[in-house]
Structures are given as C-alpha cells and as structure tokens.
Design a protein around this nucleic acid. Structure first.
Lengths: 157, 157
DNA sequence: CAATAAATGAAAATGGTTTTCATTATTAAA
DNA sequence: TTTAATAATGAAAACCATTTTCATTTATTG
C-alpha cells in the first residue's frame, strides 16, 4: 500500500479533519505541507512567509487559525522558547519526523533537537504517564522534555 | 543555625545578587517574597498586583525586570502554558518548594503540579543530562517535563 | 442548482512585554 | 559623612505577536 509522503486524497491528516467535521481546504493543505517540509521550529510568521510564497492569497490569520486547530488536534506541538513568539512543529506521526526533545540555550535561545536515549525515555515516560493518568484522572496525549542551560558560546561569552 | 523563611541580611538569594554585582533593593525583595509565599504559577501581572498591595510604588516594569533577572540567574523558571502570558515559579532551592513537574490541560489550560515518582525521574534525568551535556557540549542548569492532555472536565465536555 | 454553514482575509483591536528617559536610590570613594 | 558614579526604578509610550470582527468566498448538503 502506497501512502508515503504524498498528499493526495486520503493522506492521514485529511482523515483526521473529516473525523471532526473540518474541511480540507487549500490554505490548510499548504500549512501542513510546509510543516512537513520543515525540520525547524517555525513561528507563525515563518509559516506565513512560506505560505505566502506558495499562494499569496493566504493570510496570516488563517495560518494562526490552522496552527491552533492542528495544536488542538494534537497534530502539532506548540511551545515557547522565551523569545515572545510561539514555535510549532509536527508531533510524531505516520509521516512526521522522529520523536525528539529540546536542549534550549538560555543565552541565545538556540534550540538543539536530540533524539538519542529514547529507549530509556520510553521506559521512564511510559511508566510515569500511566501512574499520572490514573492518579489524576487525566488523559495524556503528549509530553515534552526540555533541558535548559548554556551552549558553549554563551558559557564563555 | 536558624535560616528558615526569614529574609534578613544574608538570605541565600541575596548572596547570589551580590555575586553578580546586582543590588538588593526593596522592590526585588518584595518580588522574591511573593514568589516564596505563592504555590501558584504566577504571571507577571499576578506578581504586580500583590507587589502593589504591599508597596504601591512598585511598577509593573520592575516586576518584569526582576522576573527576567531571576530567570537568567536560574532562580526562577519561566514557562508557557499557551494562554499568552508567561508563568513564573521558583526553581528548587534552599527555601523553595519541592521539585515538581506539570500536567497541562489543553482544554482549560489548568496546570496540575505533580511531585510523585521523583526517584525514577532522578535516575532517568540524571543519566540523560550527563549524556547530553557531554555530547552537545552544553552546560545544563535545569529541566522541565510536561505532560499534555485533557482533564476529566474537558474530556467529557 | 440553491441553501446552509464553514472558512477566509484584511483591517482593527487587544494585551502582554519591552523601551525610553528623566528621576531616585544604592554603593564606593574621598 | 558627604560626594561622585552608577545601577535601579516607574510612568508612559512603543512594540509586536496574536485575536477579533465582519464582509466575502468557498465547500458541503439537499
């Protein structure tokens, strides 16, 4: 069965949209395509610039609305580095990038992705998630681990 | 040796200030006192309201500046729930509250603190932190673990 | 094809955070 | 102490990411 990275009728995320009664529209396709093609942690403005190149009629408002919707659906993770603008990235998913976490420099706000040591993580997170969801009667859909500190540059600066 | 919760001359954080050549001023004392007395995740505005009750001459700008400074020093952790305002809380410290992490509801943005299962965490985080700081030549000063999902209310809603 | 409802974009409004700058308070020096 | 140098403060203005409003367009349903 061919599914791959294509976005034809039936791409995985379109099913998710249909499930909740949301329409699959051109602007939404563009935004999701951009997220797929990016390995960065993009801001809404970043997405807007790229979307605008592809289709100048797409407005910033729609980008925000789409990113919010995707976040609500758990398709995108929104997070904050501390520089005043939210960042977005695709959550682990059939087509998406590998599960990873962040190393954030408090000096220059640089973000390093790491995806090593996932075995240990899986064990720890799985166990903890189970215990927490029981204890607090909470449906857990995602998690984030961030380490803060200083990169070499900012340490010596 | 009595240290307790007092903030007389020599309180732990004042030493930190002196170390970096920052002055110990009345507004800064007020802000730090407020953080000590709060178990919540306060916004800058929250701190401002309380500070203003204690000393009406304290301005919002100074609250922001003090919180930023404390964040830079690693005394306070700044984080974002996704509702547009930054939250602040004291990091684990001699006087501070217990090490904990967050369970964040994507529906109502409620934040549940949990501090259970710290033994497992200590093991996992300690190991991972070591490996990461070596591999990425990064000085790690702090970490955050957040679980996202839906509380009972928002799940059934 | 018509009717209904959802989605969109432009512009304006919002609101948290930062900057500016003149004043005040703190520290170090004499 | 008093004074000089410098850091910190507060009010107001500026900033800027995000949200709201609303008239228009587009997608679905019958």
């Amino acid at each position: 069965m061919v599914r791959g990275r294509g976005h034809g009728r039936g791409a995985w995320w379109q099913d998710r949209f249909h499930d909740i009664g949301a329409r699959v529209t051109a602007p939404r396709e563009v935004v999701i395509d951009i997220l797929h093609e990016t390995n960065d942690h993009v801001s809404a403005a970043d997405v807007y610039v790229k979307a605008h190149e592809i289709n100048p009629s797409i407005g910033l408002t729609t980008v925000y609305r789409t990113l919010d919707m995707l976040t609500q659906m758990g398709i995108v993770q929104k997070f904050d580095v501390g520089d005043g603008k939210a960042r977005y990235e695709l959550v682990n998913n059939p087509d998406g990038k590998k599960h990873h976490h962040h190393l954030i420099c408090l000096g220059c706000k640089a973000i390093i992705d790491y995806s090593e040591f996932l075995d240990d993580e899986l064990e720890y997170i799985g166990k903890t998630q189970n215990r927490l969801s029981k204890k607090y009667n909470f449906t857990i859909t995602d998690h984030a681990i961030s380490f803060y500190g200083f990169c070499e540059r900012c340490r010596s600066g």
